[in-house]
Design a protein around this nucleic acid. Structure first.
Lengths: 341, 341
DNA sequence: TAGGATTCTGGAAGCGTTTGCAGACGAGGG
DNA sequence: CCCTCGTCTGCAAACGCTTCCAGAATCCTA
């Protein structure tokens, strides 16, 4: 491995000039710049990032804390973040933080603090006050996806509005017996998504004067099998069966659809189903849904974090930014079948 | 941020001793070690990894090149790799390399070379000879998941054997009309998985003396909608319809099952379906499959790479290691329905 | 008790960059 | 014609660690 010294002597200039020529900082004549880059290329020289970081204090790394990878929402965020970071010449350091206490501790106490990252993107991180404090104490830009989260700028869709929109769609079709299959409130891995979607659902019903109680909401594991299991349970009992279900995610919704099919129920004739996400499988199941784009959320988070890095003093607009989401109507929702008296 | 100097003066020792005490290298008395770690803790000191890397030449980073994240197989590998690396105190640098030529170039020419990683794990990387050469030229440990790949150690399941096993299971049940829905040979994102699974299928049929031709194999996009589309196509035509389908992945198999259901066909009464993976959804669909554990493959790759790092000269056993995989029988396969004459 | 081996510690020399400072040079304005 | 200003370059001092080396203290062993 050749160092800057070798390039300097080959190009017939000093190390300082090589550094300036290659980094584009400070004055270098066009002619010298060319000589230097030729020399560097012919030697296959690349700057040592450790040496460079040591003096500049910048690592060109961004740490990403994410609770899981193997799920559409999270994987999409990660893809978006990765793409955006690489585009801007930053590297991505991945920290998959699960529920385990010791793992969380390790990441917070140890990894993030070692001067390895310039900034942090925290994805739906349920975080304690002391952890927030620790992150802020780093003095590094940090943006959360999800939220809101006291003290750090976050972005997400407006979960309440999205849930309201979904529920209103069902109400508008004429449904009066709408159940909500959501995530377990006690088990939300993130910033209260589950309770916010439940809230939006309740708001819509209340506004429309449609009665609802605690039996209108059932918790499910947040994936297809989870939706399936709850779907089987709810739909198996004809007296309990609603005319429409608002599922808190497309995966749950698809599980419900599978359960309905298995019970011989037609969607949407016997049951309307709506979800949230616009998951890649939504189209296959004709699922009406509220779209969100986690990849774009990832890109946005990167943009903010980089902007803070390159323009000190700048801060993201507002504590919690809500991205728009829109209704996509497919074939899983329809007016309720006229009641056979 | 306090430096080693501060810790040294607080503990009343030299920088050298602090370094030794904290890193555990060289002689330090128990008493001094304690003083030093107390001082470090009270100052919130952590070593600067740039400074440390600069002198040791080690970054404690491992680069992971992966073609996609949003798919069970890849996400699982990534989770396995991440967990294993963090456990050993290494950080993970993520490079999501898609098909784009310029992106590949950028990663190979630029990112990996900047002295930022100690080793590389390449996941199902379809790689040119010159790229391989470039990777090897880094002189850094590198392990591939997938393979084989000339010159670098790789690991994967034995795709041919797995496909053979799956096909044999169908043959053993008495099927003679078995089709294969696989990936597009021309589009394989990785180390010839698709052609190897096709080959295993053909081998099994040939060995059993069951005739097969180019019409026995149909290419599908490698996901649920892909399997669904091809399933609709194959199963829609009663004259063409086989009694069993071996799908090259569980996602494709699930798509086929969905198509069959939609056509009013019963699985397994009218059609047996088997896949490969043991995807989380396999259980929900009662899918018989050949299990593989991408997370363990990831962990294994990490183990090899770290061992090479910590024990110079050691190399993984063999060029291409094949992991065992096993048949999991569920309800999607059964003997063919007796022919109604 | 002497002498070597072992344990412990500090000084100082790097590791490979970036950057402040100063000097050199040419151009342009008064 | 002199002075200033903008451009260009090199010297040398960091940046914050690790580690070689040498010296001191302690412990065994003969």
């Amino acid at each position: 491995m050749s160092g800057i010294e070798d390039v300097a002597s080959l190009a017939g200039v000093s190390k300082a000039t090589v550094s300036r020529a290659l980094s584009g900082r400070g004055y270098v004549s066009a002619e010298t710049r060319l000589k230097v880059s030729d020399a560097a290329a012919s030697l296959g020289y690349v700057v040592s990032s450790s040496a460079s970081s040591l003096v500049t204090g910048r690592t060109n790394n961004v740490g990403v804390i994410i609770p899981m990878i193997n799920q559409w929402f999270f994987a999409s965020i990660l893809e978006g973040v990765e793409r955006a970071l690489l585009d801007r010449g930053y590297d991505l350091m991945l920290y998959n933080v699960t529920k385990t206490v010791e793992e969380r501790l390790r990441v917070f106490e140890y990894f993030l603090v070692r001067k390895r990252v310039d900034a942090v993107i925290a994805v739906t991180l349920e975080i304690t006050a002391s952890e927030t404090e620790r992150l802020l104490a780093l003095g590094k830009p940090i943006v959360g996806i999800g939220g809101p989260l006291a003290g750090i700028p976050t972005l997400s869709i407006d979960d309440i509005a999205a849930a309201r929109l979904a529920t209103e769609h069902l109400l508008l079709l004429g449904h009066r017996d709408v159940m909500h299959v959501g995530g377990d409130i006690d088990e939300q891995m993130d910033f209260h998504v589950h309770s916010k979607r439940l809230m939006g659902y309740q708001e819509a019903l209340t506004a429309a004067g449609v009665p609802h109680d605690e039996h209108s909401y059932v918790a499910a594991r947040f994936d297809i099998p989870g939706g399936y299991r709850v779907g089987k349970q709810i739909l198996g009992d004809p007296r309990r069966r609603p005319t429409a279900i608002f599922a808190a995610s497309d995966e749950v919704a698809i599980g419900v659809i599978l359960a309905a099919r298995e019970l011989g129920l037609s969607v949407p004739d016997d049951l309307s189903v709506i979800g949230i996400d616009n998951h890649p499988l939504a189209d296959l199941f004709g699922l009406t849904t509220i779209e969100q784009r986690p990849d774009l959320q990832g890109e946005q988070a990167v943009a903010w974090v980089i902007r803070q890095l390159e323009e000190p003093g700048w801060t993201p607009p507002g504590e919690h930014t809500m991205l728009p989401s829109q209704l996509i109507i497919r074939s899983s929702t329809a007016p309720p079948r006229p009641r056979t008296v």
